[in-house]
């Protein structure tokens, strides 16, 4: 999947100006960049119902799962009821439930801590059977061990031949061989494996 010669303006200013992005199929891909640089905007463009010709190889919107960064939604259901709702949907993956989720099953969604809340939301997004999974800053606001576990889940998803795109402004949880699109500025995107990106980020 790739985005070629892409430009996007917000309030008359370019967020992206004739840039290219490249994503490996069936792998965990990263969009790396400072806060406010346009990572969420890029994901929003990927999930647009009518994409323009610059977006190549992306699946139909119905085959994309997208976990937005802001998810302050609270509801008086238990975690079990929420997961059962996902199981009722027409295409669900047969994933083994992590113990971290199992122990929360009977808790009310309203009573979860911030970390638990995010873990459950990420997990329910993994459960639905889609071709492409987008996660907007999944590691933001959760502690390091939680975020490490979550990125482990993403890698398991990639092993099931699913493509995952994750935006992040942090460098932890990225492996040297991972495909990274580093947004340096509005006109320059460096797309390569993380080892090479690290070498070029210094300059």
């Amino acid at each position: 999947m790739k985005i070629e010669n892409f430009s996007y303006r917000y309030k008359k200013q370019f967020l992206f100006e004739k840039v290219d992005f490249y994503f490996e199929d069936c792998q965990v891909n990263f969009i790396l960049g400072a806060k406010g640089i346009g990572k969420t905007t890029l994901l929003d463009q990927i999930v647009k119902r009518k994409r323009n010709d610059h977006f190549i190889g992306f699946p139909n919107v119905k085959k994309i799962a997208y976990l937005a960064q802001e998810n302050e939604f609270r509801v008086g259901l238990t975690v079990r009821e929420i997961i059962n709702f996902i199981y009722d949907l027409n295409k669900v993956l047969d994933l083994e439930m992590p113990p971290e989720i199992t122990k929360l099953l009977d808790c009310s969604f309203n009573d979860l801590t911030k970390d638990e809340h995010k873990l459950v939301l990420i997990y329910i997004n993994l459960l639905v059977d889609k071709e492409l999974y987008l996660f907007d800053e999944p590691g933001a606001g959760i502690d390091l061990s939680c975020s490490k576990m979550v990125f482990g889940w993403f890698r398991e998803l990639a092993e099931l031949d699913k493509t995952v795109i994750v935006t992040t402004s942090r460098l932890d949880n990225i492996y040297d061989i991972d495909n990274v699109n580093y947004i340096k500025n509005t006109q320059e995107i460096i797309a390569d494996n993380y080892l090479k990106i690290k070498a070029r980020m210094a300059f």
Binding site: Y66, E72, F73
Partner: peptide, 18 residues
């Protein structure tokens, strides 16, 4: 409004496909 302002409307839309 709560769904949308909390950001969950977006997530739920892509989970559901509509």
């Amino acid at each position: 409004i709560r769904l949308r302002e909390g950001g969950f409307f977006k997530t739920l839309t892509y989970l559901m496909g509509s």
